[in-house]
Nucleic acid binder design. Structure first.
Lengths: 187, 187
DNA sequence: CTTATTGGTCAAGTTACTTGACCAAGGGAA
DNA sequence: TTCCCTTGGTCAAGTAACTTGACCAATAAG
């Protein structure tokens, strides 16, 4: 039973929740039984590779993501974290990401510190599934969610479903740092 | 019915969930019916002030907190947030939770600021499903995860699967504030 | 050809919450 | 007083979503 079973249940459940599906919805689309999916999400059965394939297809994730080892460095120290510059990827945005959780996929949570330089901001309002939670550590931020703009000061926080179109900008001439957590990386 | 009823239902539900109580548990302690509490949390009835008093006593919140205006669901401002006291923790070991996410059902993310008073901390290492992410805003924290202790300073962060036994303590004589996000909301 | 094991199905059970029917107590107005 | 009506509840049946146990077809092994 529970020999060397890799615990993918929780990840599957999360992937399903992200899509707002019930077990019966998923069972419907995957064409298997609801009960089996329940047992699967509770790590009480092992699925066939074929079935698993159909499941990850519907949930829009991948088997490799599912089985990737979740990084176990528990604590990350201030100043020691990997910093990614989005301008290396898409030029001219002036946003850096300090990774709180090593983005080794398969996590349910994803956390970064958005370091938004003066005048910088996000570009394309990315719309995806999941939820976003943020907390302004330092500086100010103009956050635009679903057409409404919010001016945030240190200590303010925000929360919204990722499906709402959203973007942000730092209107000041000082750097802004925002702790940003969202559900899953979708890698 | 829904005339000028201030919507306290969700806040009550949230306060209850924080304490890990079911409707029947609360009904038991408050000495009223489960059904009435359900309707109350769904803003379908108005309670007597007496009953409400007993409820907030058990949930360790206050009527004034309950009726304080929570602004828009997306942004919550520093200093305006609901504060809950956890007391399934040993008495006198002050930990308060400042809720970042205005309580609503079905969220994937749950975020609070743990305000740990000098010498305070969690007691029973609670084990549940999901993942935990934290960031020390201010003060210091001794975090114990799966038998290993970490001493955290401001700006340090941590991340671990909730299934690992964990607890924390503030070893200093200054208040510590930790931004804490987890998934799923404590059920 | 038996006998086990694997990968499932199906329907009954459980949990936690919700809802509708009802009811006792108090407070006017006639 | 009696009648009615609102308020603040109770109680038990209903429901949504998940879980579990019994079982079964199709290989695989002896």
């Amino acid at each position: 039973m529970s020999d060397s079973t890799f615990p993918i249940g929780m990840k599957l459940r999360h992937a399903r929740k992200i899509k707002g599906m019930r077990l019966c919805d998923l069972a419907d689309q995957v064409e298997c039984s609801e009960g089996f999916l329940s047992k699967l999400e509770n790590d009480k059965v092992k699925p066939s590779l074929q079935l698993l394939h159909r499941i990850v297809a519907v949930l829009e994730t991948s088997i490799s993501t599912l089985f990737s080892k979740t990084d176990d460095s528990i604590v990350s120290r201030a100043g020691t974290r990997q910093i990614l510059h989005t301008s290396n990827i898409r030029p001219g945005e002036g946003v850096s990401l300090e990774t709180l959780i090593s983005p080794s996929k398969g996590h349910l949570l994803f956390g970064t510190i958005h370091i938004v330089s003066a005048g910088g901001g996000s570009s394309g309002t990315i719309i995806h599934e999941g939820e976003e939670l943020g907390y302004v550590l330092e500086g100010e931020l103009d956050l635009d969610v679903d057409g409404t703009e919010y001016h945030l000061m240190p200590g303010d926080s925000f929360f919204f479903p990722s499906r709402l179109p959203h973007g942000y900008r730092n209107p000041t001439d000082k750097e802004t740092r925002v702790l940003w957590v969202n559900t899953p990386p979708t890698f």
